[in-house]
Design a protein around this nucleic acid. Structure first.
Length: 203
DNA sequence: TCTTCGATTGTCT
DNA sequence: GACAATCGAAGAA
């Protein structure tokens, strides 16, 4: 299948580089043989036990073990008793880190997403980390999926190169109780949606 | 075992 | 803008 799959060496890079680099890439979901594709436009980096916003701050546990494993795999966890979150394991081996996928722009398989997000305005189908997992039917049983294998239910492929002036870095969302300096680290990356739409339309 | 609280969302005012 | 929903992981006891 796609020779343009994002290969494991990508995920061995520094976690911030991965978080920035994933902006503009395609998130692919194979659902019973049908592919849903969406461009990633918002991510956050969680980097190591010393990052007090990172789940691995408590060390290696059953939940975070996947972050200590091989790079390029999915770390999917459940939160608020309701929501699934999708992350990519990144960074140097032995260093627990991951990139949270916070938002995507669907480009293929819209009919499936429409069913998964019934009654929700299209604008809000995939504009949040738990919204996109619901839209793409991603749940905890896909935890540990190899994102570098096009036979996986979830995998990531090459996308658009976005110049830095269309991608801004801001503090991460929803970590109000995390102490400084972690709370203010500009480890969230978000692309200009208008620019991304134009880039997508050119292709 | 018990308590706290979360990398959020959707609804209601 | 405020807040309930809803449950499992982690830390305390």
């Amino acid at each position: 299948m796609p020779s343009d799959i994002l290969d494991r060496s990508f995920y061995l890079q520094d976690t911030l580089t991965c978080a920035r680099g994933l902006i503009g890439k395609f998130l692919n979901r194979n659902l019973n043989g049908r592919i849903i594709r969406a461009v990633i436009y918002e991510t956050e980096a969680y980097d190591g036990e010393e990052d007090l916003a990172c789940h691995a701050r408590a060390g290696k546990t059953k939940r975070t073990a996947i972050m200590y494993g091989e790079r390029g795999f999915a770390y999917i966890y459940f939160t608020y008793g309701v929501h699934w979150m999708l992350n990519c394991v990144t960074g140097r081996p032995g260093h627990p880190a991951a990139v949270l996928i916070r938002a995507v722009m669907p480009t293929q398989g819209m009919d499936i997403i429409a069913k998964n997000r019934a009654l929700i305005p299209q604008k809000h189908w995939t504009d949040g980390p738990a919204k996109l997992t619901k839209a793409l039917a991603i749940t905890g049983d896909m935890n540990g999926t190899d994102l570098c294998d096009s036979a996986s239910p979830i995998f990531i492929t090459q996308g658009f190169e976005l110049p830095d002036n269309y991608v801004q870095a801001t503090p991460r969302i929803g970590i109000d109780n995390t102490p400084e300096p972690w709370k203010s680290k500009p480890w969230r990356f978000i692309a200009d949606l208008n620019h991304l739409r134009m880039a997508a339309n050119r292709n």
